[in-house]
């Protein structure tokens, strides 16, 4: 008898073996139990490269069943090429359905955006994380970073916010604004825009963060306090578009991105945009 006889040689479209999925689920449960804490996990290599969503993909694959409906977006766009690639990997290996409508999806995997609407208590949001460490800008040594989180010693972060405000007059953090979760851990909110930050606070949906390259999973359970780090007398500012409107749907209530000429604006959430326009 050869060892290979013990393996089922059926060609599987599975991207991860069952033990891996179990490991990932356990890590995810630990993350949900300790909101904001970065849980280390044995991140597997995926058919997409490190830095391209391998962490988000692992969480999705570990969590999704064939009766799920999956939405995948990149920069808010269902049709972004990386989103398309990830979506077809998920649907072909899990048998789940796909949809571009957030309220129809049971799980949304996203890079850099939260859908403008449609997420409720039945939704899971999986965010792809390039760098899970919010303190990376103020400290490089990993031993010291571990201590800072363990002791909730975020003073160096506060000093950098103070210096930012002093030097620039405003806090100039762009996307991935550091937030205090459940009053305990500071997290990197991936590069989602500040526009999306308020929707993390007390959200009805579960948010899972997957960092495949750095091999960390963290979570914000539903109805959890999420506070962007800022001084009480320095208001948190979302991106300002000076009242611009989307060239397609005419609305200004969503996060807008501009063309290089910076006079034409478009909704970043393409599905939300499409639903504002009368069906043609």
């Amino acid at each position: 008898m050869a060892l290979s006889d013990l393996i089922d040689h059926r060609e599987s479209s599975e991207l991860l073996d069952e033990f891996a999925k179990r490991e990932i689920r356990r890590a995810t449960l630990a993350a949900v139990a300790i909101p904001g804490y970065q849980v280390p996990f044995g991140s597997r290599e995926m058919p997409v490269a490190r830095g391209w969503g391998s962490g988000g993909l692992q969480i999705t694959l570990a969590v999704v069943h064939d009766d799920d409906t999956v939405k995948v977006i990149d920069q808010g766009d269902d049709d972004g090429v990386n989103a398309v690639n990830l979506r077809r990997l998920v649907t072909s290996s899990t048998g789940a359905d796909e949809s571009s409508i957030a309220s129809e999806a049971t799980l949304t995997q996203s890079r850099h955006r939260i859908p403008e609407d449609g997420l409720d208590e039945t939704s899971i949001l999986v965010l792809q994380v390039p760098v899970p460490e919010p303190l990376r800008g103020v400290e490089r040594d990993m031993r010291e970073l571990a201590r800072m989180h363990a002791e909730a010693d975020y003073s160096r972060m506060w000093v950098s916010l103070y210096e930012d405000k002093v030097r620039n007059g405003v806090i100039t953090q762009t996307t991935g604004y550091p937030c205090l979760v459940n009053g305990r851990y500071v997290v990197a909110t991936t590069p989602i825009p500040r526009w999306d930050i308020p929707r993390l606070h007390n959200a009805p949906f579960l948010t899972l963060f997957g960092a495949g390259r750095e091999k960390r999973i963290y979570a914000i359970p539903p109805y959890t306090m999420v506070e962007p780090l800022t001084f009480e007398d320095v208001p948190f500012e979302v991106e300002n578009s000076d009242g611009a409107c989307c060239a397609l749907c005419g609305k200004s209530e969503s996060f807008l991105v501009s063309l290089p000429n910076s006079t034409t604006w478009l909704c970043s959430d393409t599905d939300w945009c499409a639903r504002q326009r009368p069906a043609t």
């Binding site: 010693d153 003073s155 160096r156 506060w158 000093v159 103070y162 210096e163 405000k165 002093v166 001084f231 009480e232 007398d233 320095v234």
Partner: peptide
Amino acid sequence: VTAGGNIAEPLTAAGWRNFAK
């Protein structure tokens, strides 16, 4: 770090959150 920022370090570590103060 600025002179003010150096002093901000122990203050924020002690829980000060008001920029003007």
